[in-house]
């Protein structure tokens, strides 16, 4: 049963991350997910200082708020200060991450709020952290419920907003010319990425989220030149990485998150070779 919960959680994160990551890739903003995963640190610390506890919910809210804030700063540096987007991303996430470290060393030095604990959830612990209702019923792992809820939101956003995302990603100027707010769709996507990153790395770890945001979409992009098949392939590769990664990890007795990332990377390499042979 443990295997099932871990694979299911991995798959849910892979699908959420991959679908959003496909749009990031097409906007040439793949590294935003990585930036967000670091930039949320001060949000977590501030939430901890304000709430005075290590409750998960305030920390998630604080983290998500800083994730969105990071995308606002990146956008401002890129548009207003006319910095290249990669430099804007780099400055923002290193700056915010450093701010978080300073805050920890100043105010939370004695508390167990170290970076491993904050940044790297561990997917192997998913089955242990179960949701038990006040009536005492075991609902299964909490992470499955959280990432499952997230997937519903992400699917709803892409399903309903498909045309808006497509239009503002492909040709923002044309979108603006017909009176559609490019900024609205940008921040909608960025908020979704931010929440996804925060929610999932709390349960599965930062490296895995970033890998799922970038690698499956990039693999799918190599193999198709239509958007809907690209999204479908992204889901497939995410699923394959979650399943394959789990069994690889139990075979070599290693890190599950690492193995899932590695399998995603193997798919990418195989796609690259297949494309070159063709």
């Amino acid at each position: 049963m443990n295997a099932f919960w871990i694979i299911l959680t991995g798959t849910l994160v892979a699908i959420c991350g991959g679908l959003l990551g496909a749009f990031l890739l097409l906007r040439k903003m793949s590294m935003v997910g990585d930036a967000i995963s670091h930039a949320v640190l001060p949000g977590i610390v501030i939430a901890y200082l304000l709430s005075g506890s290590r409750e998960v919910l305030p920390m998630l809210v604080g983290a998500a708020a800083f994730g969105v804030f990071a995308t606002v700063v990146i956008e401002a540096l890129y548009r207003k200060a006319r910095l290249q987007s990669d430099a804007a991303i780099g400055i923002t996430f290193t700056g915010l991450f450093a701010l978080g470290i300073v805050l920890i060393s100043l105010f939370a030095g004695q508390v167990d709020l170290d970076l491993d604990c904050v940044l790297f959830g561990e997917i192997a612990y998913v089955p242990i952290d179960v949701w038990i209702t006040p009536g005492g019923i075991n609902m299964g792992p909490r992470a499955v419920w959280v990432t499952g809820g997230l997937l519903v939101l992400v699917l709803a956003m892409i399903g309903i907003g498909y045309k808006g995302l497509l239009l503002t990603t492909f040709n923002p100027e044309h979108a603006a010319s017909i009176g559609i707010s490019v900024a609205f769709w940008h921040y909608l996507l960025m908020s979704a990425v931010s929440v996804t990153t925060v929610v999932s790395f709390e349960s599965v770890g930062a490296i895995l989220v970033v890998a799922f945001l970038i690698v499956p979409p990039a693999t799918a992009y190599l193999l198709t030149n239509k958007l809907k098949p690209m999204l479908a392939l992204t889901v497939l590769f995410g699923l394959g990485a979650a399943v394959g990664g789990y069994y690889l990890a139990s075979w070599i007795d290693g890190s599950i998150a690492g193995a899932m990332s590695v399998v995603a990377g193997v798919f990418f390499t195989a796609a690259l070779v297949a494309k070159h042979k063709r």
């Binding site: 097409l26 040439k28 309903i160 907003g161 045309k163 808006g164 497509l166 239009l167 990603t169 492909f170 040709n171 044309h174 017909i178 009176g179 559609i180 992009y221 198709t224 030149n225 239509k226 958007l227 690209m230």
Partner: peptide
């Protein structure tokens, strides 16, 4: 625009019919 974007000719032309009112 990025002409490597994964859309077909028809999809691009159909974007000419997108409006604020029918976007969703």
């Amino acid at each position: 625009v990025d002409w490597d974007f994964p859309v077909s000719v028809r999809e691009v032309v159909e974007m000419g019919r997108y409006r604020r009112a029918n976007l969703l």
